[in-house]
Amino acid sequence: MKEKIHTTAICSSTRSALLTGANHHTAGFASVSDTCTGFPNNQGWLKPEYATVAEILQEYDYTSFAVGKWHLLPLDRTEEQGPYQNWPLQKGFDKFYGFMEGFTDQYHPDLIKDNSVIQPPKSPEEGYHLSEDLSEQAVHYIYQHTTAYPEKPFFLYLAYGAAHSPHQAPKEYIDRYKGKFDEGWDIIRERWFENQKKLGIIPQNTVLTPRNQLVKAWDELSEDEKKVYARYMEVFAGFLEHTDEQIGKVIDYLDMIEQRDNTIIVLLSDNGTSAEGGQEGHFVHEKSLDILKTGTEVQVEYSGKINEIEFRAAPQVVTSKEMLDEFFRLD
């Protein structure tokens, strides 16, 4: 398998290509489903002639679960009364637990289970957080499946709402990063860049790109702005660490049931940091159209050993369509 892919730099389009193996325009997602135009290349839902990976795996006796963000429907098709033909259960998944739109509140999410609206299992005061809930549900589905059908394979599509806005994490995670970003983004990005070279993530001859001209130099900010933006970064970092722990819970469970070495694990981000909010952090939805590209590169981490064959990363760049093609070539 490859260790890098190209996303479409925006969520619905990347998800459509990843789940179907088709080019996102061909699958019906030239942009996010919220901005669909009705034209065939941007209709805002998956075309029926392009099967999802879950539909294909049904033919091979897999059980498939979708947990988390779907975002492959226009808003007027996300209501509880349907139509359902492009909801997860109608696209090859046996069970679904998550939310339909591009983002939701981490403490008061708009939850769907299968084809029905449900309420979160507990309140924020009782310790509820969506990312934790999604991991617990994913583990529950794996437990149910492996207990009833230990020899039958499963496919889990787990898509967290993090680290999309709104950035909401438990306070103790945010507090761990207090003061970590006070030097500002200019110094920090240079340090991270050099560390990536040191770790071998990027070639030694890589040149750091100029700071985005729409973002001020840190030294040009007022003291109040520095405090606010440093806090933004603390919140995001805490949110990301919290999410990382939730991913770890699922992997730990695979270890516990001795299935990690028999599982291919693919970890990716569908578009990375977004410019939609601008420097101030507010959400300006119209700007999403300006960042749609077809060549944003993201890192993919995976590991696994299937039938005693160990898989190792190869330094190549592919599209999300080619990534799915490669998955089906694994034996």
Rank of each mutant, 00 (worst) to 15 (best):
W70N: 05
T206C: 08
H285S: 08
S274R: 11
D182S: 07
F193P: 03
I202M: 11
P153Q: 07
F39N: 11
R231E: 07
F99P: 01
V266D: 02
F328M: 15
F103D: 04
D252E: 15
G161I: 00
M1N: 10
V53Y: 03
K198R: 07
K95P: 00
I5G: 13
L292N: 12
P109K: 04
E220N: 12
Y302A: 10
T296I: 14
Y50I: 08
K287R: 13
E172D: 07
L208M: 14
L73E: 02
K113E: 06
L289A: 15
T147H: 12
S303H: 07
I309A: 15
W45L: 08
K305G: 02
H145L: 00
A237G: 12
I264P: 01
F65N: 00
M1G: 13
Q196W: 14
L221P: 06
T263D: 00
L156Y: 02
F311D: 01
T78A: 08
F154V: 00
M1I: 14
Q58Y: 09
L214H: 15
K122R: 12
A17G: 10
F328T: 12
T104L: 01
P124E: 02
D105M: 09
S288E: 14
E297R: 13
S33C: 10
I202G: 12
G238E: 13
H6T: 12
T147C: 06
F93V: 01
H25G: 07
N262G: 02
Y229V: 08
S12G: 05
V139G: 01
L289Q: 06
W185G: 10
P124I: 03
P150A: 05
Y149A: 11
R312I: 08
Q144D: 06
T78I: 05
K249Y: 07
F327K: 09
T209I: 12
R329Y: 15
H164S: 00
L156T: 06
H25P: 04
E59H: 14
N195S: 02
G179S: 02
D61G: 05
T26L: 14
A22T: 09
K47Q: 12
S16T: 09
L46C: 04
G28D: 03
Y60I: 00
K180G: 05
E258C: 06
S31D: 14
N86E: 04
Q106I: 09
S131W: 13
G200P: 01
Q43G: 08
T35R: 15
Y60E: 15
L267H: 14
I5H: 10
L75T: 12
G38Y: 10
R176P: 06
D133M: 01
M256L: 09
A163N: 10
K122Y: 15
S165P: 02
P109D: 03
Y60P: 00
E190W: 05
